[in-house]
């Protein structure tokens, strides 16, 4: 390959480098520094070495929160991806229904996370919430404040309500980009509905589905605001995900050393998963 003949381009990226340094690199360095020390405030620090890392890695609290995170993400993906595909397949392709459906689908995405949490927190309450009171009237014993399963169901339904639209919109974008000629050819060959989906629509949606999968996994793995507003991590610790645990540790208990160690471990897990997904995505692109 030829040598770069114009190095002026490097100066163009300097502002971005400075911005990233201030917003990411310097805070990350500070967190690393905190993770090997102990502090009681007043800008005084005591060397702790790798003790906080050992504490975090050998604690049930960390592994339980990580397991909850992974289970939550797996359930979210198992529901939102197929549901998003089904809804996108059944959305109108032309006429007045298109803008109506698109606006309806986009609405949940426009609501801020904390507002979504507040809506569902009130909606699910047994004393004043529509969902809670309806379920009670139907004889279903539902109370997300006291029952861990109810809390999980509430969080999953809330996330599905909030984010399935994103999968729908991405799949719909993939579907409308398929030329009519493909469907006409399939009709001439007498292809069944399933064959059209399996051999035309699904391959054409592959790239957008991968993006949807990535976005939903990363979002659900780093979820904080909604469960914090609805359940606060409870009942007990049943909905305490890593992010909630981290905030409890850092702000609630003022254990900045262990919280910094947990932050670094959490960051490394997210970095690893992001790299795996990015590699899968770019390799898949290169093959196609």
């Amino acid at each position: 390959m030829e040598k770069t003949w114009n190095n002026k381009a490097w100066f163009m990226v300097l502002p971005v480098l400075v911005l990233v340094a201030f917003s990411a690199v310097i805070p990350l360095m500070t967190v690393v520094n905190y993770s090997v020390q102990d502090t009681f405030g007043n800008n005084e620090f005591f060397w702790a070495g790798t003790d906080w890392y050992v504490d975090v890695l050998t604690s049930d609290r960390f592994w339980d929160a990580l397991t909850r995170n992974l289970i939550f993400s797996a359930i979210i993906l198992a529901i939102e991806i197929p549901l998003g595909i089904i809804i996108a397949l059944n959305m109108p392709k032309k006429g007045l229904g298109v803008p109506v459906c698109l606006v309806l689908m986009a609405l949940p995405l426009l609501i801020p996370w904390n507002v979504v949490g507040t809506i569902w927190q009130v909606f699910g309450r047994v004393d004043i919430g529509l969902l809670g009171r309806t379920l009670e009237a139907l004889g279903i014993n539902y109370n997300y404040v006291q029952n861990p399963i109810d809390a999980w169901v509430t969080l999953i339904v809330m996330d599905v309500w909030h984010w399935t639209s994103l999968v729908v919109l991405l799949c719909y974008a993939g579907l409308v980009s398929i030329p009519d000629a493909y469907y006409q050819a399939a009709k001439i060959d007498g292809a069944s509905r399933w064959s059209v989906f399996r051999y035309i629509q699904l391959p054409k949606m592959k790239r957008v589905l991968l993006i949807a999968f990535l976005l939903r996994f990363m979002d659900s793995f780093m979820i904080y605001t909604e469960p914090f507003v609805v359940t606060g991590g409870g009942p007990g610790n049943s909905t305490t995900f890593l992010s909630i645990d981290l905030v409890k540790m850092a702000i609630g208990q003022f254990d900045l050393g262990p919280a910094a160690a947990l932050s670094i471990i959490y960051f490394l897990i997210i970095l690893l998963l992001s790299w795996i997904f990015y590699t899968v995505m770019t390799t898949s692109d290169a093959q196609s």
């Binding site: 360095m29 690393v32 520094n33 090997v36 800008n43 620090f45």
Partner: peptide, 15 residues
């Protein structure tokens, strides 16, 4: 830069 709580080992790591 005292707010960054630098130590010699972490400085060596980043260097």
């Amino acid at each position: 830069f005292s707010w960054m709580a630098w130590t010699l080992p972490t400085a060596l790591f980043f260097i």
